Amino acid sequence: MTALVLSDSAHEPVPGLTLSNGLRPGPAAFAKSLANEVGPRGIRAVGLLPYRIATDRALEIDARTGDVEAARARDSADIPLRRYGTLEEFGKVAAILLPPAASYLTGVTVPVDGGGLRGF
């Protein structure tokens, strides 16, 4: 199994990240292409799309606003679950995709987003 951690901007543009928004869909397409190439050898390729996960990077981005709590509250309000995800939650999704129970899943990107990404 190959797990690729992508960016939410692979699925939905992030305001203010024009260059990144243009580059990020490429790795999602790579996951699909990789699945086609390595699937015959029994290797699966799955992309994970984190949205707002409470990481050091998310804290850094929130801190740039000058008010971490206000930034987190604003961003959390856009997430149906009304909070950032945890690293543990992200890891659990990856763990669900790794075992044999998910052996017929490949070539897809799975949002780990609390419902925050608006597309299908």
Rank of each mutant, 00 (worst) to 15 (best):
A31Q: 09
P100N: 13
A28R: 10
D78T: 15
V93T: 13
H11P: 00
R44F: 11
P13Q: 09
A63K: 10
H11Y: 08
L23T: 14
I61N: 00
G26D: 08
E88S: 09
P25A: 12
P50W: 13
P80R: 12
A58F: 04
N36Y: 00
G66K: 11
H11C: 01
T86E: 05
L4Q: 09
V93D: 07
A58S: 12
R82D: 05
V38E: 05
G116P: 02
P27A: 05
G47K: 03
P25D: 08
A35R: 11
E69L: 04
E37P: 02
G114N: 06
D56C: 00
R74T: 12
K92H: 14
I96Q: 09
R72F: 08
G119K: 11
L87V: 13
L105K: 01
A73K: 14
R52C: 04
A70D: 03
A73C: 02
V112C: 06
A94I: 12
G115V: 05
G91T: 09
R74H: 09
Y104D: 03
H11V: 14
L23F: 12
P25T: 09
T106P: 06
V108I: 14
T86N: 07
G66N: 07
V46Y: 04
R74E: 15
A70P: 01
T86M: 08
G116M: 10
S7N: 13
P15E: 11
A102K: 10
V110I: 15
A35I: 14
T55R: 04
G22W: 06
G114P: 01
P27S: 06
G91S: 14
R72S: 04
G115R: 10
I53D: 02
G47D: 07
L19K: 03
L97V: 10
V46S: 00
A31H: 11
Y84G: 03
A45E: 06
A95W: 07
A35Q: 11
G39W: 03
R118E: 06
V110Q: 02
P50V: 13
G22L: 08
M1I: 00
P27K: 08
V68D: 01
G26C: 12
L17G: 02
A10L: 01
G85Q: 10
L23R: 12
Y104G: 07
A101F: 01
A63T: 11
L105G: 03
T55A: 01
P50Q: 06
L105S: 03
I96V: 15
